[in-house]
Amino acid sequence: MSSKAIAEFIGTFILVFFGVGSAVLMGAHIGFHGIAMAFGLSIVAAAYGFGAISGAQLNPAVSLGFLLSGRQEMGDFIVYVIAQVLGAIAAAFVIYVIASGKADYSLATNGLGQNGFGPGYNGGYSLTAALVFEFVATFLFVTVILGATQSDAPLGFAGLAIGLTLAGIHLVGIDVTGVSVNPARSIGPALFAGGQAMSQLWLFIIAPLAGGALAGILHGAGITRSPHAAPRGSR
């Protein structure tokens, strides 16, 4: 396994372990604000820890944005996505093992931080609301990432900008879908939670990928890219 694949695996593990773990293990104590900060801080940690190795994309939608913007090759894209999904699954499994150590924990009752929508899930938002949120939020997230990592962006601040953006997105949307903007983040918990999480998983794959794709296309076309930035090169 390449160093880039290992970095993406561990980085995505960090994202899911911090973010989803905070929701499952501490959600009742820290609330939505705390969960949002956990997701944001996880990105900061992974970006500065692994950004120099793989770019710390940690998200198939982000990797698709890099691919379609011309800043990543297809071979790396495939390797990254596989590593990201496996990292998310591994983190979800570890969270499940830890949560199962609590006497009153039940996967069926407490869940595993899975994404969802509709009756019985957080605010009970509709399918349309979930689709719109995930598409728009992912588009904005990937646009920020591509901009913060372009060649003439201020050095050393990309991880902080990206982490704060993810925290902000969670503050807006946790009550809507639990916030995915990342197919890997959704796949990991859904595989263990099953049921509704699996039946609704398609939305948390398609909508983020569509948002990431649009961000990548616009960036590659120069519409959301600095005219002085080099068009190629990953984070």
Rank of each mutant, 00 (worst) to 15 (best):
112 L>F: 02
164 L>Y: 03
229 A>N: 07
218 L>K: 02
215 A>C: 12
160 L>N: 00
104 D>Y: 08
204 F>Q: 12
112 L>R: 05
15 L>K: 01
132 V>C: 11
79 V>L: 15
47 A>L: 02
140 L>E: 07
36 A>I: 03
142 V>R: 04
51 G>K: 01
86 L>S: 12
87 G>C: 10
76 D>W: 07
145 I>N: 14
160 L>Y: 06
63 S>P: 05
117 F>G: 06
121 Y>K: 10
78 I>F: 06
132 V>G: 11
71 R>N: 00
165 T>F: 02
122 N>V: 13
17 F>E: 00
173 G>A: 01
209 L>C: 15
17 F>R: 10
210 A>T: 15
199 S>C: 12
72 Q>S: 14
3 S>D: 10
226 S>H: 07
91 A>N: 08
48 Y>K: 09
22 S>A: 14
118 G>R: 00
167 A>V: 00
25 L>F: 09
67 L>W: 02
127 L>N: 15
75 G>S: 13
129 A>M: 15
90 A>M: 14
96 Y>S: 08
81 V>S: 08
199 S>T: 13
141 F>A: 10
4 K>Y: 00
44 V>A: 08
88 A>E: 01
87 G>Y: 15
36 A>C: 13
50 F>W: 00
4 K>T: 10
100 S>L: 06
62 V>L: 04
125 Y>I: 11
167 A>G: 11
101 G>Y: 06
93 F>S: 07
178 G>H: 01
126 S>W: 12
96 Y>R: 12
141 F>C: 08
124 G>T: 06
180 S>I: 11
87 G>P: 00
148 A>F: 08
75 G>V: 15
37 M>D: 04
138 T>G: 13
106 S>Y: 06
138 T>P: 07
157 F>N: 01
41 L>D: 00
149 T>N: 10
194 G>I: 05
86 L>R: 00
55 G>T: 04
120 G>F: 09
32 F>C: 06
228 H>R: 09
89 I>W: 09
98 I>T: 06
57 Q>E: 07
64 L>A: 11
133 F>D: 06
157 F>P: 02
132 V>K: 15
92 A>N: 12
130 A>E: 05
102 K>R: 13
113 G>M: 12
109 T>C: 00
38 A>N: 14
125 Y>C: 11
103 A>K: 12
18 F>K: 04
121 Y>V: 12
55 G>C: 01
188 G>T: 04
15 L>F: 09
175 D>M: 05
122 N>Y: 10
217 I>Q: 10
27 G>W: 11
16 V>P: 03
129 A>S: 09
17 F>M: 14
20 V>D: 03
63 S>R: 03
158 A>W: 02
214 L>P: 13
152 D>L: 10
196 Q>N: 15
104 D>N: 10
199 S>N: 14
11 G>C: 07
157 F>R: 03
220 G>T: 06
94 V>D: 02
162 I>K: 02
116 G>C: 12
90 A>V: 08
168 G>I: 03
227 P>T: 03
54 S>E: 04
233 G>S: 07
101 G>L: 03
149 T>Q: 04
67 L>M: 07
109 T>G: 14
68 L>M: 14
111 G>F: 14
218 L>S: 14
61 A>N: 05
180 S>R: 13
208 P>V: 09
25 L>P: 12
45 A>H: 02
187 I>Q: 09
125 Y>F: 14
136 V>K: 13
221 A>F: 10
116 G>L: 09
200 Q>K: 15
2 S>W: 00
